[in-house]
């Protein structure tokens, strides 16, 4: 069911920007795989995600999903944002049904939505206006809305970053479970290292100016993942090292970042780390 994605040498230049925002990005995602994108603010993660969604076209290169070039948005690949962006004049059910209404799939819509709202734990709230829900519940509605059209690919742009820690963990696990059950491919952007390790099969680290993929880390811990296990903690520490590597040297101070390689030497240092793990580093 999950979509196979190939990002073929994307370069993107926003009008009026001197430097390209993204340069020669080349990534493939296997059907059903979950990939995390991390990197410092402004490195072009959202830009890349918008291109996957067909909401933005790259200036060079293209995105292919199941072999077809992505040229416009489609309910088969659905994007979720930091804000739930629900329609405040509608009930929970109406919001969740919208994709089906737009596609004219109104037959058995009620049952499908009932089932979906049960999956995200909002059965009781079905006929309630979305404005009366908490932030976490609203993001659940957005999740249900995204899942209603049976997407092959979910694109998540920091979807849980505005939520409290408990809700965030619950939703991370929920999305992971649903995506695995339905074999949906997932590409998500996060600033939260733990979130990346908890959800992803593979983490891509992005560097900026111009945005490129600087490192890649496989996370082969079985699901459901125990966040206190040694393997989990190790992966987090490892990732922290790469994440530090993408920062400007001036910003590096103390803690885990102290050991982080500076940008000049990032590839050699990252390479030495790779001997210990399955991380592969692309020549920068």
């Amino acid at each position: 069911m999950g979509a196979a994605i190939s990002i073929d040498y994307i370069t993107h230049h926003y009008p009026k920007q001197e430097e390209p925002t993204l340069k020669d990005i080349q990534v493939t995602v296997a059907p059903g795989e979950t990939v995390a994108l991390i990197g410092q603010s402004g490195c072009g993660k959202s830009t890349l995600l918008h291109m996957l969604a067909g909401l933005l076209l790259p200036s060079e290169g293209c995105v292919r999903i199941n072999g077809h070039q992505v040229i416009k948005p489609s309910p088969r690949w659905n994007m979720m944002f930091q804000k739930p962006s629900l329609y405040p004049w509608m009930t929970v059910r109406k919001n969740a049904s919208l994709g089906l209404i737009f596609q004219g799939r109104k037959r058995d819509m009620r049952d499908r939505i009932d089932e979906l709202l049960e999956t995200v734990g909002l059965t009781e709230k079905a006929e309630v206006n979305v404005q009366s829900l908490s932030g976490g519940q609203q993001q659940r509605v957005a999740l249900a809305r995204s899942l209603a059209t049976d997407p092959e690919l979910l694109l998540l742009d920091e979807p849980f970053s505005a939520l409290d820690a408990f809700t965030r963990v619950a939703l991370q696990d929920e999305v992971t479970r649903l995506a695995r059950e339905r074999r949906i491919s997932v590409v998500f952007v996060t600033h939260d290292i733990e979130e990346a390790v908890a959800m992803a099969d593979r983490v891509l680290v992005m560097g900026s100016n111009p945005g490129t993929i600087t490192a890649e880390l496989h996370i082969d811990i079985a699901h459901p993942r125990d966040r206190n296990s040694q393997a989990f903690v190790d992966r987090k520490a490892e990732l922290m090292g790469y994440f530090g590597a993408t920062r400007a040297p001036a910003a590096d101070k103390g803690g885990a970042e102290a050991e982080a390689p500076t940008s000049e030497t990032e590839s050699e240092q990252a390479e030495s780390a790779a001997t210990e793990s399955r991380a592969r580093v692309r020549a920068a």
């Binding site: 659905n78 962006s85 737009f102 809305r145």
Partner: peptide, 18 residues
């Protein structure tokens, strides 16, 4: 109008009438 509403609608497959 919140531009996100249009973006989400677009993503969900809304045509101009929708």
């Amino acid at each position: 109008i919140d531009p996100m509403w249009l973006k989400v609608g677009n993503n969900l497959g809304a045509n101009p009438y929708h």
